[in-house]
Nucleic acid binder design. Structure first.
Lengths: 254, 254
DNA sequence: TCATTATTGATCGTTTGTGCTCATTTATGA
DNA sequence: TCATAAATGAGCACAAACGATCAATAATGA
């Protein structure tokens, strides 16, 4: 008969090895009752050594690759949705708006379907995908070269497309946001595209969760005072908001 | 029998791999009822791991614009593939080519992957979808408004994008092809886009299966003599080819 | 030895997952 | 446009799995 600790270790080993195990299997294998196995599994799950399922358990390793998938793995999804919700409040019926690529702006696209009269221009193929079935929203997309990681179009053709339009509001995402260095992104073409977006919008609204603040990326898009409004989540530092106030940049915290 | 977790992961994997899956397929593959698959799909959609459709699900990892109708439904697929194969023969390494929307030009995109140095510009999101993973092909897309039935971009923004480029060869599809009326399509914006394509290409190549010949649609794109070459299938009438000869338009029958 | 505590196994009411049916909705083709 | 077929979702029933509880057993210390 094994001691409790030994048994638990065996369970983890068994699950790791076969990536999965049922309660029955384990009960039989280790010569203890199913109740005991369930108790063990419960504790092992709390100790994050495996993941329980109905009927047994699976190894964490197999679960982890789920993190490779978009959105669900996005720990800041909740913040992004709140930011997007606030952004949507700023939109009025009849507006022409510009949606940048990125996951935060994608949340805006998702929330846009209830409008009945809207023109949307975007360089994000994900946003297009969300909106293409909406009869009451006129969706245009900029051309350009596809950046596979962001699923957004960038480059000279994108800028040329943007030159054709004037919009009421542009909603921009970013990688870095810093009081001194302003708005930065890792890609040169992307930076140029964002710059052009700011240029063709009457009002530029920057969306950023707290993970972006203080970050500085390779390419500068613009200084913070070129932006009309920022929407930030509540985890932002007071020093940053004071800086924004000093620069006279409007902001909303959600 | 798989646990619920494992099954869901399998579904996501399956959908990711094949970009789409039907409820039936999944039910059969995983050995559970269609009800269960539907329940799973519902939850997976809520978790944003895939997108449900009527009859199944599609991956949202990438650009998943489903074809207006599947290949199988295309009764002239064989002709179109032969026409596309001939078109590909006309392309040389290093060329910059322009691909129009439509199912025939889509077949060209599929056959293009073997080239190692090519620039492709297209207004077809289906073509983009085909080519986006090819490292050795630089793909750009024109902007514009999406026409849902052809999954191609049209409109002023498309034309503006096209103005930026000069290509060696443009491959155009059409709805109607007539000796007197020339090339015609049912949509005004589409016609304008095609005209612009002809304008920016050194050489314009028209692709048409025999079902298009003699058809006259609402909007004129161009006269036949503005085209440099036609690729037709073997079911074309002799009277038509004699007409082409008389107009001094080159053509190939496949 | 006895009392105490921890661990285990058995019981049982509850929850969960699954498949089936059927009315409703949705696509598709005439 | 309407008719038809397919797909869907809600509801129900059944079985498996679960968790709470309690009794039995084993380990521990006085």
């Amino acid at each position: 008969m094994l001691f409790e600790e030994e048994r638990k270790r065996s369970i983890v080993q068994f699950v790791e090895q076969r990536t999965r195990a049922s309660v029955q299997e384990l009960s039989l294998q280790l010569g203890v009752s199913e109740s005991t196995i369930r108790r063990d599994l419960k504790e092992l799950e709390e100790a994050r050594l495996l993941k329980r399922t109905h009927g047994g358990a699976v190894s964490l390793q197999s679960v982890n690759f789920e993190a490779a998938f978009p959105d669900k793995a996005d720990r800041l999804l909740d913040e992004k949705q709140r930011i997007a919700a606030k952004a949507v409040q700023m939109i009025q019926e009849g507006d022409a708006i510009l949606l940048d690529g990125g996951t935060t702006t994608l949340q805006i696209a998702r929330a846009l379907k209830s409008f009945s009269n809207l023109k949307v221009i975007t360089n994000s193929i994900m946003a297009l995908n969300e909106l293409k079935d909406c009869r009451n929203i006129e969706v245009s997309i900029t051309g350009g070269m596809l950046r596979p990681d962001t699923m957004a179009f960038v480059g000279p053709m994108t800028e040329r497309s943007l030159e054709m339009v004037r919009v009421d509001k542009a909603f921009l995402g970013t990688n870095g946001l810093d009081l001194q260095e302003g708005i930065t992104t890792p890609n040169m073409l992307e930076a140029a595209t964002k710059r052009k977006m700011i240029a063709v919008a009457k009002q530029s609204i920057l969306l950023a969760d707290h993970s972006k603040i203080g970050q500085v990326s390779f390419c500068k898009v613009a200084d913070l005072n070129e932006i009309d409004h920022c929407i930030l989540d509540s985890a932002v530092q007071g020093s940053f908001t004071r800086g924004l106030e000093a620069m006279d940049v409007g902001f909303t915290i959600v």
